[in-house]
Design a protein around this nucleic acid. Sequence first.
DNA 1: GTGAAAGCGCTAACAG
DNA 2: CTGTTAGCGCTTTCAC
Lengths: 343, 343
Amino acid sequence: MSGPVNLADVARRAGVSQATASRALSGHPHVAGTTRERVWEAARALEYVVSPDASGLARGTTGRIAVVVPHLARWWFGAALEGLSEVLREAGRDLLLYRLGDAVSRQAFFDELPTRRRADAVVLLGFGVDERERERLDRIGVGIVAAGTRVGSHPSVSIDEYAAGRQAMDHLVHLGHRRIGMIVAADPEVDLAQPAGRSSAYRAALADAGITPDPALTVTVSWSAEDGARAMGELLGSPDPPTAVYAHSDEIALGAVRTLRRSGLRVPEDVSVIGIDDHPLAATTDLSTVAQPVGEQGDLAGRMVLAGLAGEPVDPVITVPTRLVIRGSSGRPPAPRPANRRP
Amino acid sequence: MSGPVNLADVARRAGVSQATASRALSGHPHVAGTTRERVWEAARALEYVVSPDASGLARGTTGRIAVVVPHLARWWFGAALEGLSEVLREAGRDLLLYRLGDAVSRQAFFDELPTRRRADAVVLLGFGVDERERERLDRIGVGIVAAGTRVGSHPSVSIDEYAAGRQAMDHLVHLGHRRIGMIVAADPEVDLAQPAGRSSAYRAALADAGITPDPALTVTVSWSAEDGARAMGELLGSPDPPTAVYAHSDEIALGAVRTLRRSGLRVPEDVSVIGIDDHPLAATTDLSTVAQPVGEQGDLAGRMVLAGLAGEPVDPVITVPTRLVIRGSSGRPPAPRPANRRP
DNA sequence: GTGAAAGCGCTAACAG
DNA sequence: CTGTTAGCGCTTTCAC
């Protein structure tokens, strides 16, 4: 019975004051070894567990980290969250998850900020913010770390989007492709400027290869495989379809592959496809891609907040490496078609 | 200056006592309309935000719901979490995420329970627990709801695993398959008894069709696509390989498809494959499957905790429907091979 | 309707 | 080293 047992109960049982009990349990320096022992024993016997709220109230911290994500069902987010949650758990911090899917919930969240009262710091996971939101973030008084995106001048971990894009594009170019399509992924109200690097890599790679970009070969859709399929349809419908396609994500690339197959085209014999991410199913479906360490980004973001909270210096910008993974979806372009004249 | 603004500040500015300010803001009945107005105005002007911790401490609740998951990177969990987080957000509850990946973290979590002090209720998402853990859960004093699994006699939402399995198996049987393999998914330290229904559906379907099960056609692996590929390899290595394979998940099914293709076998002409889930990439890869409403399970679980917290009656067991989705990976079995004798 | 006062459970000076 | 005394910021009887 009795309900939750409090510090007072422990103190009483150990025959010390509540203050001493508190000190003993939170491992303070100036406590006699034997006292400490007695207190711990009482706590154990009573199955005592501190109230983080009360403790936090008194101490002025919450012990919680807020994590903001725009999605949860997409692989990248789950994987990043997995890395992040692991370090936070080990550090004994609780993770408060905020999934802000639409403009309304974002508004509400950023307006109600002074998150101060809910968490000691916030991690933005693949969450691009606009001017207004950034300004709001800047003055909430708690540490901010971004992973997968840059957010103002706050510390962040991410890949080099441009470099990743170049790895993919250069691969296609080196294989000999000259007509290369790009499927841009963009989430209307979530990715503010996110894939800029991936897109500029496309243009730069083309320029470096002396290829004139054909606007008809770039199509922008949202991040789903379905949209990737649709985009490929458009590309195929253009007057002079590409022999290779560079997609901003593996999911999109897989959608593209499906459309190609349905259209009776072979991958990579007729059309090459490459994505970005190294989604687990990319290996399964033999998709060439540019791998990025996702869980590690979450992990690093976690370490950064912790460091910040501990008053340690924090690297302002960490860039994790990406790596070209050549699988079966990319190959040389088909022999040039016999052109439109009869022999 | 100033730092966080408190209720006291609001009260002062509105010219009322803190008690009245509190009542006005939390929408209590006995407050004069004009007073209420004045308080709200002050609060707005000061951008006041309550401290959930202080408020909770005083009121005896936390305003938080703990959500426990064994994984985050696998689609099912992200999707379920998405549904759950949405209702909780709308209800103004914070979501505390606990990702318990291994035995150690589980131990720690369940031992430290009296979650009482961290959350008002806990939702187990696809998280099977063992005896010891269940016993622990039963006496922590907060509401418990399970989604995707049953946990003791706590309220739960899930599909009918057996029925789902039968939909998949019956489909294969009806197509004429007699040698059907099964790839069982099991997570050593996470799925305690979870896929029992999916496995028994296999045996029952076979029995109903008068087919003698061949132990060589059942192989158990973990939930990854890679393992599905490996499992399919084993199946192919058996003396008399199956003409159809029933996998416990789409990810596993996709792994199996890959092995088949690499072995030069066509799907579904040579071997049919069916999974469970209706993973977004199942549609993309034209995989037949049994669809389950995942986000909805999270959503319902959320509503159940909220109802419980509100003291409303809660359905003890909700079963959401599954649906056979026939795509291109399943078809009739190949014509019987010419048998091992020469004409 | 509103204010005063007593905590919620814990921590942090400040004295001993 | 340990106990006493104040709160942390808010809610809630209990009177007026």
